[in-house]
Design a protein around this nucleic acid. Sequence first.
RNA 1: GCCCUCAUCGUCUAGGGGUCUAGGAUACCAGGUUUUCAUCCUGGCGGCAGGGGUUCGAAUCCCCUUGAGGGUACCA
Length: 491
Amino acid sequence: MSDMRLRFPPSPTGKIHIGNMRTALFNWLWARKNNGELVLRIEDTDKERSTKEFEDIIIQELDWLGLDVDEGAGVGGEYGPYRQSERLDIYQAYAEKLLEKGKAYKCYCSEEELEEMREKAKQKGVMPKYNGHCRNLSKEEEKEYIKEGREPVIRFKLPKEERDVVVEDVIRGDVTFSSSVLDDFIIFKSDGMPTYNFAVVIDDALMEITEVIRGEDHLSNTPKQILIYEALDFDIPKFAHLPLILDSNRAKLKKRSKDDDVYIGEYREKGYLPEALFNFLSFLGWAPPEDNEILSKEETIENFEITDINKSAAVFDIEKLNWVNGKYIRESDLDYIVELSIPFLKDAGFIDDEFVENNYQWLKKVIDVSRTGVDYLAQLPEEAELFFKELEFEDKEAAIKEFNEEGVELVFDSLKEKIEEIDEFTPEKISNIFSELINELPVGGRTVYHPTRLALTGLDSGPEMKNVIYILGKEETYKRLDNALAMSNDN
RNA sequence: GCCCUCAUCGUCUAGGGGUCUAGGAUACCAGGUUUUCAUCCUGGCGGCAGGGGUUCGAAUCCCCUUGAGGGUACCA
C-alpha cells in the first residue's frame, strides 16, 4: 500500500447512475494503479431524500461492475464511521471550533427572509449573496430571536479581505476564484445536519484523503471548501475534476434524463456485461496511448494516467456502448455467456432449470449461434426464439406459394437424402451439402436457401442454415421439410 | 445576471508549433464473405466553431467573439 487514499462518496438519494459510476471507476482505477486505498463514504446528510435502500443498491452496483473498495461503509476500517449521519458529533465539534475562533456565526434568518433578500438582489441585478445580517448580532438581538423560537444555522464567516482562492487541479491546472464572489455560506443546517461543503471537508481531512477525484460540477464549490480547510488548519488534498458526462440532449446526465437510461441497474437488467460497461465508461474522458478500443481491466489499470484525462465533457453514446457490449458478448467465453443468458431465456418462458440441466450442450449451441446478432442479452430470446417455439408462419399463403415453386420439392428431397448420407452431422458437413445442392441441382442458390429457411424457421432471415439444421437436428429438420411439402400439396 | 470550465468528423477520441493531405473507433454508405439478417474483412463519406494576433511556419501558443456545460440552495 502506498500513502495514497481516495474516496468515492455517493449520496444515497437515488440509484447510482452512469455519471456517478464513472467517477467511482476513475477513483478505483487511480487507486489500483498506485496501490492506494479506496474509501466508500455515504453522504446522507440530506435527511429528506436519503434511504438505506439506495445505499444498498449503490454498494451492489459497485460490486457488480467490479469496483471493490478497501475501506468504508459495508467494509469497515479505522477511519469510521463512514456514514455521515453517524458522524454528527464530529461535525458539531468542528463547527464549535470555528464558532469559538470567530470564523463562523449563528444565523437566525428564516428561509422566507432569505428568499426575499435574493429576490431583491435579483431585481437590482446584483449577485444574490447573503447580506451578513446576523454576522454581528448583539446578545440582546440573539436572545430575541431565540425567544421567537428560531432555529439557527451556522454560517462560515468569509475573510474580510478580498483575496484569490486558487484550486490546484491535476486535470485543469490552477483555477482562481475571487473570494468576492462567495458569501457567508451555511455549514450547518437548522435541522442539525452539516451541509455538504462542510461535511466533505471534515471527512476528507479526518479520513486523510490525499486525492479528491470528482465531477466538474464540484469545481465551483471547491473554493468554499478550501477556505474551510484553511480555517481548520487541515492539509488540502490534491483535486482532480473530471469532465461531466452529458446525456443525448447535451445536458449533465442526471436522474431521468428523459431520453436515456441513466441508471446502472437498467443496463445490468438489459444484459450489458459489467466488463463491457467498465471498458466503455473508462473511455469516457480518457483514452489509452494505443489505438485499442477493447481493454481488459488489467490493461486499463496499466495504461491509466490521471493527467491523460480530458477536460471536455463527453456525450454518453449508447451506439458505441452497444458495439462494445456486442463485442464482449461475441468474444467472451461461451460458458460465461450461457450462464448470463439463462435468466433471460427463462424470463421469456423458453426454458426452466430442468431443461438447462438436461439440454446444456444443446443450449450452448443455440446461444452460440444467436449471440452474434445481439447488442445486449435481453435481445437474445428474440434472436433464439425459433429454436424454442413451434414452427409458425407469419404469412401462410405466401409460404405455401413459395413451397409450390418449381424445384423446391426436389431441393427438399435432395437435402434430406444428403443429410442422411453424411458420416458426421456437423455445421461444416451441412454447409458442404448446400454447395453440392447448388452445383448439382438445376436451380439457383435462392431456390435452395430461401424455401429451406422458410420451411425450417418460418422466417426470412436468421442464423446460417448450417447452424439452424445442426441445432434442429435431423429428425426435426425432416419433419419441418415434410410439413412444408404437405402444406403445398394440400393446395 | 455573476463566477468557473470547456471547444478536433454526428458521437467517443489521438494529436502539445513543421512528420497533418489531421490518425483510430463508432455510426452511416458501398463492396466482399455467408446467395438471408447479423458477424467478419476491405473501401468510402465526414472534423480542427469564427475572427484577430505571435511565428519562416499554427489544430497546436495568446487575445476577442460565439457556442456548450457547470456553479451560484438550510441538494449532494
